[in-house]
């Protein structure tokens, strides 16, 4: 952690950490503690007075069917985004690992969606599936399917899932490809000599050896689906129709800034912070095992 050889005591290190600590305290620790405090208050309708109510906001949330609905939707959403995106990325990575010619070119053409802003990704998919003009609804109507995600909640959810998974394929692809390339070729050659075909080699050797990468990506994808998809939801559906795509992050924003329910929004923030901290701990315990620090 600290260098064996280091500089002696002076005021300099305090000056060096000062900017980072200032920003952290003002924009992270203070607001987070404000959220904790506000989650225990109830404000009147005009925001003039507030009352300390202990955990009433939380009790109210847990009794609120809309909140549970949002919770459930968020889980379904992140599960489907993670599986769709990781599944297709794994397939593409296995194929890219196999080809000798052109794998660099394929990589370039597969990783660029990482750079697309969530809101822009939302716009791309919204346009493609636009019920009145979009290309895909036009094609779908020929097989007798009437697509309208502005009315149908399931279709709206599907569209948000497509857009969110599409954006995340790049990240998963890169990590799966790196994982595949770090598997020793001698293992696979030995299995090939013993007569195992490509499919069997994949399921009995490659896939188990990839499991650290898969687990790491699973956590990253859940965090992504929980917290970084606000722009996608806002651009495509704004949480609708009838709240069918209102995931937790969207509800915090909506209740706080649109509904002006400060206590309720703060309580939701606190629950989300708990989820983030839980996920980060899981991720770090795993990363710690893989990486050894030299302290």
């Amino acid at each position: 952690m600290l260098k064996r050889v280091h500089f002696g005591p002076s005021a300099l290190p305090y000056l060096l950490v000062l900017p980072q600590i200032l920003v952290t305290v003002i924009f992270f620790i203070w607001p987070a503690s404000q959220a904790l405090y506000q989650s225990l208050l109830v404000e009147d309708a005009f925001g003039l007075s507030s009352k300390f109510v202990w955990f009433e906001n939380f009790e109210y949330l847990f009794e609120d069917p809309y909140y549970w609905g949002s919770f459930q939707r968020t889980f379904v959403f992140s599960f489907l985004v993670a599986s769709l995106s990781m599944g297709s990325a794994l397939l593409l990575a296995v194929m890219a690992d196999r080809v000798v010619k052109g794998s660099g070119l394929y990589r370039t053409f597969l990783i660029w969606p990482y750079a697309v802003a969530p809101a822009a990704a939302g716009a791309l998919w919204f346009f493609m599936f636009n019920p009145t003009l979009g290309i895909l609804p036009y094609v779908l109507q020929f097989i007798g399917y009437d697509w309208n995600h502005k009315v149908n909640g399931t279709e709206a959810m599907a569209l948000v899932i497509f857009a969110a998974s599409w954006k995340q394929i790049a990240y998963n692809f890169l990590f799966f490809l790196a994982g595949l390339q770090s598997i020793p070729k001698s293992l696979i050659e030995a299995a090939a000599i013993d007569g195992a075909g490509p499919g069997r080699r994949f399921w009995t050797i490659v896939f188990p050896l990839l499991s650290p990468t898969t687990f790491f990506l699973l956590v990253i994808n859940v965090v992504y689906a929980f917290f970084e998809t606000f722009g996608i939801v806002d651009a495509i559906t704004s949480g609708g129709p009838a709240n069918s795509t209102q995931i937790l992050v969207y509800k915090v924003y909506n209740d706080g800034f649109v509904g002006l329910d400060l206590g309720g929004s703060a309580a939701q923030s606190v629950i989300l912070m708990g989820i983030v901290i839980g996920l980060t701990v899981i991720q770090f315990r795993f990363v710690e095992k893989k990486v050894s620090y030299n302290d």
């Binding site: 980072q20 600590i21 952290t24 305290v25 992270f28 620790i29 203070w30 607001p31 987070a32 404000q34 959220a35 506000q38 917290f227 970084e228 606000f230 992050v249 915090v252 924003y253 706080g256 800034f257 400060l262 929004s265 703060a266 923030s269 989300l272 912070m273 983030v276 901290i277 980060t280």
Partner: peptide, 16 residues
Amino acid sequence: MIFITLMLPVEVRILP
């Protein structure tokens, strides 16, 4: 103190 910030994306403490 710096480590804690790793845990809290801006989306979850947006209002304060």
